[in-house]
Write a protein that binds this DNA or RNA. Sequence first.
DNA 1: GTCTATAATATGATAGAC
DNA 2: GTCTATCATATTATAGAC
Lengths: 208, 208
Amino acid sequence: MPKPQAKPERKTRIQSQNEEIILDAALEVFSAYGYRGGTIDQIAARCGLSKPNLLYYFRRKDDIYKAVLERTLADWLEPLRSLDPAADPATELTRYISAKLDLTFGRPAASRLFANEILHGAPHVARFLKGPLKELVDAKALVIRRWVAEGKLRPVDATHFIFAIWAVTQHYADFAVQVEAIIGTPDRERVRRAVLDILLRGIIPGRG
Amino acid sequence: MPKPQAKPERKTRIQSQNEEIILDAALEVFSAYGYRGGTIDQIAARCGLSKPNLLYYFRRKDDIYKAVLERTLADWLEPLRSLDPAADPATELTRYISAKLDLTFGRPAASRLFANEILHGAPHVARFLKGPLKELVDAKALVIRRWVAEGKLRPVDATHFIFAIWAVTQHYADFAVQVEAIIGTPDRERVRRAVLDILLRGIIPGRG
DNA sequence: GTCTATAATATGATAGAC
DNA sequence: GTCTATCATATTATAGAC
């Protein structure tokens, strides 16, 4: 959070704008080097502010990190949240996986920031994982189980299936340098087809 | 590498033993906090050596990190390497995926160390990725394509299928705190069955 | 080989002028 | 709000006694 000056005045446009610039730069730096590895100097340099000026907007390094992390969490839940129980499973799962891949390729830094946070024990988002995330996954696992019960989907371990979707899609952001080392810059449409095929062929009736 | 004293004497048992202890401690520290986040102090404290004493065995922090990373790379390739083209695909892929899961649950710190290294651009293992790893993946993708051509496996994008296996199996180590937040400590056998089912059902003939 | 002490550097954070 | 200068601390790494 930015420090409010004496009186709780409304933010100027300059302020909001600078905060955005800082958070964009912080996302790049923290996702590339980790929390400990990224420095305030780097972030300041990247957005053309002096270090003390940056620290005027965010008093401490930790505040910057929390802000950039929180900004990504909401977006992260959205695709799963919009999984519609009333619609056709094949359509919905295809849409969900495609949306996750769009995030992966469109905002790889956000994926890597989140991956880094989890990888190192989720010190800043433990509450988020055990609260909103768990609730959402539990709810959507129920949706999948209902689809299975209704015969619209072949039997599958719902929660682990969600984990598999996350793992496979985020892989192309989190392990991008490895993917690139092996196949060069991946063709997004080919990735999409391959991933949909691998994840869905076995459980969409009439597709196996 | 440990610094050889004046003459290239053979290592004493104490030396080799201490190096092992140091590398074990370093694996824990670096995998938990990242390269930058882990300190020599932490590693020294964890293995009961003084910091200068530790630096007698490995002159620089970077040397410790490289050593512990290299020690894991060979083991990481082994399961894929042993994929047998002459054997039955269903058996081989089941064995491979199970072996990966055994690594994930048996040595999660090693998985997280590697994940962290890749996540941050693979500064230390770029050559490994473009050399031995790429060669191995290319070779094993050919094996899978042959199986498909022989009708032993349904059509699948071989390389992306290997990526999917990596992603799904390593997820249980790299994102362990997230998994735990959602389902508690996972039951390994259930994970194994779920993962095998999700990854193989669609492409093993007669299993869909 | 192992220790204490310490140098050298990097980095988070603040003081105070403008 | 933004800057220069600087402090305080953490951390890598070394010197030199034992």
